[in-house]
Design a binder for these strands. Structure first.
Length: 424
RNA sequence: GGAGAAAUGGCAGAGUGGUCGAAUGCACUGGUCUUGAAAACCAGCGAGGGUCACACCUCCGGGGGUUCGAAUCCCUCUUUCUCCGCCA
């Protein structure tokens, strides 16, 4: 959520920024926020004065009792009674405005970075980099779901039986390959300076609010009603929430974590050809990188994360490209996002395998994640995260691009993890 | 699941109805001393709101209550610890 002082001081910038996102009625909404804020502050001042007077009287009463002046104490007591009623009313009104304000602020997405191109949809995303050769596949090359069946490495029907659609069972060399990818990603990340962590796979409400999944997107998470917990949709949520309500020192930066976790997403409302096979699942594995940065350093950090993910894809020798998301495609909480896509040769389409974002202070504000700056004041930190990488689509791309007539080859960097170089 | 104890500033830890936003120690920041560092000494040092700046207000796990007045008393929730039971 944007901070009120920021909106107050940068009204025009905020409205302009929201326009890049095609956010409707920005001007009206921001106007409402500022109006409510003014009302809130006026009421706050009045309440403060009432309380100040009441506090003063209380002290006097104490002194009267000590001096044995019971009469005077009784008179003062009567006065405080009235003040108390007044402050109660004021407090209720104030709460009303505060709730209204919070609700308004929850509706406002992050302000896009100046690099973000305007646009409505995927088509307006900017391709900023592309590399890797699209392999020429043999006659009879097939999409991964057919390969999965042919070599018996992923069993979608079995998952249907046990749980439902979107919960595949990995078998044999398929399971091993998946484990190899996870180990490889984690190793690459820790080599790059990220600390490996294993967070809980369920989060409470406060954590969901902290990173912005709640209150609006609760329908996208699985909810364990009896304990009021949510299954994590990404490791970003528990790992970023490590730093909720934390006051850092400047010397703590940079904070770099990496975590492998399964991710759970309800994906309500997505059906059709694009969700076949591994393209869209309810449970999938992902290795995530999360950083907490000094605001002056966060964009450098973002570039570093992009370069890091890039280096992994180079090693895997996969055709990929990097997109800078346009305003219309940008996530609610993000200021700048780079998506990585691998080309799936057999499906003849690009598959998103990573999304690397800088949230600036948007999450930090809700998280109350701050640091003491050089002036000794507390200031909001910047949060960033990215996938490195999301397993199913990497696997899909890998199976499809590395298929030969004799079987599926294993990229060289993975062979020491798999212990085999061919699935046949 | 049962029984008990506890939750206070970055950390540790006093405080059991009125000048307590809170002793003390550690950590941190500045200074003196030193070639430099350490040690020692001196000073400063919680968070949020509010103000041009003060004033002022709020916060001692969360919520509610008693009282003129609550860190302190009561209720409730959450969490932690100890003991018992169960168990990977």
């Amino acid at each position: 959520m944007l901070s009120l002082p920021y909106i107050r001081e940068n009204k025009d910038l905020v409205i302009k920024g929201l326009a890049i996102r095609n956010f409707p009625n920005a001007e009206k909404l921001i106007g409402e926020v500022l109006d409510t804020d003014i009302k809130r502050r006026a009421l706050q001042a009045e309440l403060d004065n009432t309380l100040a007077e009441s506090n003063k009287l209380s002290k006097e009463i104490g002194n009267f009792f000590k001096a044995g002046e019971v009469q005077k104490a009784a008179i003062a007591k009567e006065k405080t009674g009235k003040l108390k009623e007044r402050s109660k009313t004021l407090n209720e009104e104030l709460n009303g405005f505060e709730n209204e304000l919070t609700e308004l602020l929850y509706q406002i997405p992050n302000i896009p970075n100046t690099l973000v191109p305007p646009g409505n949809s995927e088509e307006d995303n900017e391709v900023v980099f592309q590399d890797g050769e699209v392999p020429k596949l043999h006659q009879g090359a097939v999409p991964h779901w057919e390969l999965a069946k042919k070599y018996d490495i992923i069993d979608f029907e079995l998952g249907n039986k046990i749980t439902g659609a979107g919960f595949p069972v990995y078998k044999g060399k398929g399971a091993k390959l998946q484990r190899a990818l996870i180990a490889y990603f984690l190793d690459r990340n820790t080599e790059a300076g990220y600390t490996e962590v294993q967070p809980p796979l369920m989060i409470n409400e406060a954590s969901g609010l902290g990173t912005g999944q709640l209150p609006d997107k609760e329908g996208q998470m699985y909810h364990v009603g009896i304990d009021n917990l949510y299954l994590i949709p990404t490791a970003e949520v528990p790992v970023t929430n490590f730093y909720r309500d934390v006051l850092l020192k400047e010397s703590d930066f940079p904070i770099c974590n990496t975590a492998y976790t399964p991710c759970f997403r309800r994906e309500a409302g997505s059906y059709g050809a694009h969700v076949r096979g591994l393209n869209r699942l309810h449970q999938f594995d992902k290795v995530e990188i999360v950083r907490i940065e000094h605001p002056d350093q966060s964009y450098q950090a973002l570039d570093g994360m992009v370069a890091h993910v890039k280096s992994i894809l180079q090693e895997l020798k996969m055709p990929y490209r990097i997109l800078r998301l346009c305003g219309g495609d940008l996530g609610f909480t993000s200021a700048l996002t780079y998506d990585f896509e691998v080309f799936s040769t057999a499906q003849n389409r690009w598959l998103e395998i990573s999304s690397v974002s800088n949230f600036e202070t948007f999450q930090a504000n809700r998280l109350k994640l701050r640091f003491k700056n050089k002036d000794g004041k507390s200031q909001l930190a910047h949060t960033l995260n990215g996938s490195s990488l999301a397993l199913p689509r990497v696997l899909a791309g890998l199976l499809e691009n590395y298929q030969t007539e004799n079987g599926i080859k294993i990229p060289e960097v993975l062979q020491k993890y798999t212990g085999f170089d061919l699935i046949s």
